[in-house]
Simulated scan of single mutants.
Amino acid sequence: MAAASWGVLYAAVEVTWAVTGTTVQWKEHSAYAPGVQLFLAALALLAGGACLAGTRTLADLGRVAVATALTTALPVFVVGMNGLPIHFVTMTTLSGIESTTGLAQVLLNTAGVALLLLVGLSHRRRLRGDCPRCGRPHAGASDGPLAHPAASRAPGRTRVAVYLLMCGLLPWAGAKTIWTLGGNALGVAGDDWQRTTSVGASGPSKATASAGIDVTVLAAMVGIFLLLGLLYVWGQVFPRWTLFLSGRRVPRLLPLIPAWLTGIPLTMYGAVLTVMAPLMAVGVLPEIKPSPPFTSGSGITWFVEFGGLAFGGLGIGLIVAARSYAARTRPVCSSALEVTQPE
Rank of each mutant, 00 (worst) to 15 (best):
A4F: 08
W6G: 03
G7F: 01
V8C: 00
A18M: 03
A18N: 03
T22F: 03
T23W: 03
G35F: 00
Q37I: 00
Q37Y: 01
L38Y: 02
L40F: 03
C51N: 02
C51F: 01
L52W: 04
R56N: 12
A59N: 06
L61W: 09
L61N: 08
V76F: 01
F77Y: 04
V78D: 02
T90P: 10
T93E: 11
E98A: 07
L108M: 10
V113N: 02
L116N: 02
L116G: 05
L121V: 05
S122T: 07
H123G: 04
H123V: 06
R124Y: 10
R126W: 02
G129N: 01
C131H: 00
P137H: 03
A141P: 11
S142L: 04
G144Q: 07
G144I: 03
H148A: 03
A154S: 06
T158A: 13
R159F: 07
L164A: 15
G168Q: 12
K176H: 15
K176P: 10
I178Q: 15
G182M: 08
D191N: 14
D192V: 13
W193V: 06
R195L: 15
T196C: 13
S198G: 12
S198I: 13
S198A: 15
V199M: 11
V199A: 11
S202Q: 10
T208Y: 12
A209T: 13
S210A: 15
V215G: 04
V217C: 08
L227K: 06
L228Y: 08
L228E: 09
L230K: 13
Y232N: 11
V233F: 06
T242V: 10
T242W: 02
F244P: 04
L245I: 07
V250F: 11
R252K: 10
L256W: 09
W260P: 09
L261E: 12
T267G: 11
P278F: 06
V284C: 08
P286N: 01
I288L: 13
T295L: 14
S296M: 14
E305C: 14
F306S: 08
G307E: 13
F311W: 12
G315K: 06
I319A: 05
A322V: 13
R328A: 09
P331H: 01
C333F: 03
C333D: 00
A336S: 04
V339N: 00
T340P: 04
Q341N: 07
P342F: 04
E343I: 05
